[in-house]
Write a protein that binds this DNA or RNA. Sequence first.
DNA 1: TCTGGGGTCCTAGGACCC
DNA 2: TCTGGGGTCCTAGGACCC
Length: 391
Amino acid sequence: MGAELPAVERRIAHLDMDAFYASVELLRYPQLAGQPVVIGGRRRAGGEGHVREFARLASYQGRGVVTTATYAAREFGVHSGMGLMQAARACPDAILLPADFDEYRRYSRLFKAAIAAIAPRVEDRGIDEVYIDFDAVAGGAEQGGRPLALRIQRSIRECTGLTCSIGVAPNKLLAKLASEFDKPNGVTIIHAGDLAARIWPLPCRKINGVGPKASARLEQLGVRTIGELARCEPRWLIEQFGRHHGHWLHEVSWGRDTRDISTHSEPVSMSCETTFERDLHAVRDRPELSAVFTSLCERLAADLARHGYAGRTIGVKLRYDNFRSVTRAQTLEFHTADAAVIRRTAGQCLKRAPLDRRLRLLGVRVGSLVSAAEAQARARSLPDATSLDLF
DNA sequence: TCTGGGGTCCTAGGACCC
DNA sequence: TCTGGGGTCCTAGGACCC
């Protein structure tokens, strides 16, 4: 029965850039404003500097998917993840632009720098999203966080010309939901007391972590909204979804989330994969497959070197023409970032996978990463002198 | 005409050691 | 001849996210 401090509500923000890739492209091609534009397809083949005529989505042939679409294109039912051929049927006149990730990364650094100049504790959540600890900014919790959110929006707009949407809430879970409430260019403030009115009416699928499988399962059990989920007995949820997941579903339905802002993280794995233009056969297309395999290993080794990492679990991923995937992996005694070692080990993994069906995708992965410096220190202490040759 | 590429985390089973 | 439990590491698959 200790004297309890008055409970002060945490203030955590989730910031999401509005149609990020498409908006960056609109900065380059302002004449496309308001038009349906779809980003996707294969990488830009070398710098073709200025585009005179824009390709129509209807002219697309291939296996690409929509990376993102402008709000005008979304009106036609185009959404990210959709096959480009399918999107072309929904909106043939949309302009198709190939993704330019170097440019998106450049803008990502710009908007994150703008935030960092205002708020010291920021968690990176990919190229177009962050969580921000508003409690780490003087006065950041005032009026629920609205003035600070508006200030950040203004600064990002000045630095990049781009808009974003921000949700501020007692935790990451609710902030993430809130940032979607008023898109684009909105600010939404949520307090614990808003749970029933604002969160419970939402479908379970909106929860970050409830994907297509879990939401279909819930629906099948007659649970559509987060409010309906909150009314489920925890014991029953655990029976249906297992101890961990069932308990988690109950917690999130009541808006509970204790995860802190994480300002630093180290990569666990790196990978390179590619989907072929046409499905390849391990025997009949062996030379082509082998060349792709080697180049994937070389790209991966270069990525590891560029970022300063080495790993000891080497693996391959195959996707067959029926879209089924398998993985094979092998853990070495030592860490490596060497293309030849990766290629040799991955080659052995490949031999253990079924190769009778045609392949549509091949990938190579290196896991159990440590820094290159750490890898060298460990190699020196290894009894086997041959591993020293790797550095 | 299906369905990209880069990741993280969790689970389950088997090997192996004490 | 039968009978343990715990811990760690590894592999494979799958769900999910951006």
